[in-house]
């Protein structure tokens, strides 16, 4: 079996000059619609096939620690308070106080107005602060408003910015509008890393997911992210497969490495381990690092901690023994 059931691999020469491809509206459209189509049935079968891999013993222990280190611990609720963000940040720095071998998570992810609180709470640790911006989650605001949103997050000290693309413009075929917006946000980010949320649940087809991935990467994304977690459908393995192929091909074609973040609906260690298998088998082992693959999650962390405790003690754990959040 070939390494990927989906891919006509997007060969470097098929891409040609990315700068030329993004120079005009028509060139951009030609380029995006010239990307090979995604075999949806093949992608689903491939993702389902990889989900049956059994990860045991040492590999499982390694995977659980890696999942913790890859987690963007997230709270994006209207009811968020500084107290809740501080509590979450403390947990992000030291997920399991009784076990010093447990790594810190990669980042905490909050709304822009709580970035300063989170920044103070994680000071001195390796945990980064990510902020959603650009009129998250719908992305329905003028560019000025979106850029002001980004600026407020960056000024407050955000290390990473999660922007949403304008799905309305994307679905209407106004690709250059989306591209310009991503470029503008990238510029507004300054030194902060930019994650571009495609909201794949609203993109309807895997072809669109592939196009949106390339569009985001051409715009300067450091990460492409599946979803906001606010739509009916969030991250799925087939969508992630297509995005991982896109970053692999983009790195091959341009030499620029882009990361992938899956978000929304991943609640159990088992599901998360399946994503790691998907990463390993699609983008390759080089992507199994916290700076190239992330989980946006809140309840996932507790399940991983319970699994770690089971691996350590041999006793099944209880949700009574992890924090409520």
């Amino acid at each position: 079996m070939s390494s990927s059931a989906v891919a006509p691999f997007v060969a470097p020469d098929a891409i040609g000059d990315l700068a030329a491809a993004t120079a005009s509206d028509s060139a951009l459209r030609r380029f995006l619609h010239g990307l090979p189509g995604v075999d949806q049935v093949g992608a689903e079968a491939r993702a389902a096939g990889l989900a049956t891999r059994s990860i045991k013993k040492d590999a499982k222990r390694w995977a659980l620690d890696m999942i913790v280190a890859m987690t963007d611990l997230t709270t994006l609720e209207g009811a968020d308070t500084p107290g809740k963000v501080r509590a979450m940040s403390a947990k992000a720095v030291q997920p399991e106080p009784g076990d010093p071998t447990c790594p810190s998570v990669a980042a905490v992810c909050v709304y822009p107005d709580l970035v300063a609180v989170a920044k103070r709470a994680v000071a001195g640790s390796s945990v980064a602060v990510a902020s959603v911006a650009t009129a998250f989650p719908s992305g329905r605001a003028s560019l000025e408003v979106k850029l002001a949103d980004v600026a407020s997050a960056v000024d407050a000290g955000a290390d990473e910015v999660d922007m949403v693309i304008d799905r309305g413009a994307f679905l209407a075929g106004r690709y250059s509008v989306v591209l310009e917006e991503i470029r503008a946000v990238k510029q507004a980010c300054g030194r902060a890393h930019l994650k571009v949320i495609l909201e794949t649940g609203e993109l309807a087809t895997l072809d669109n997911v592939r196009r949106a991935s390339w569009l985001a990467m051409a715009g300067g994304a450091d990460f492409i992210k599946t979803s906001t977690g606010k739509a009916a459908q969030s991250a799925t393995p087939p969508v992630t497969l297509v995005m991982l192929e896109a970053v692999r091909d983009f790195a091959e074609a341009t030499g620029t490495v882009v990361g992938v973040k899956v978000a929304g609906g991943i609640r159990t260690s088992k599901e998360a381990v399946r994503y790691l298998v998907l990463v390993h088998e699609t983008a390759g082992v080089e992507w199994l690092r916290p700076d190239r693959f992330r989980f946006g999650a809140s309840s996932l962390l507790n399940d991983v901690l319970m699994q770690r405790a089971f691996q350590r003690t041999g006793r099944y754990h209880s949700a009574d023994r992890v924090t409520l959040d």
Binding site: G314, R315, Y316, H317, S318, A319, D320, R321
Partner: peptide, 8 residues
Amino acid sequence: PWLADHLD
């Protein structure tokens, strides 16, 4: 034993 060990 698994049930007696189980913390939940």
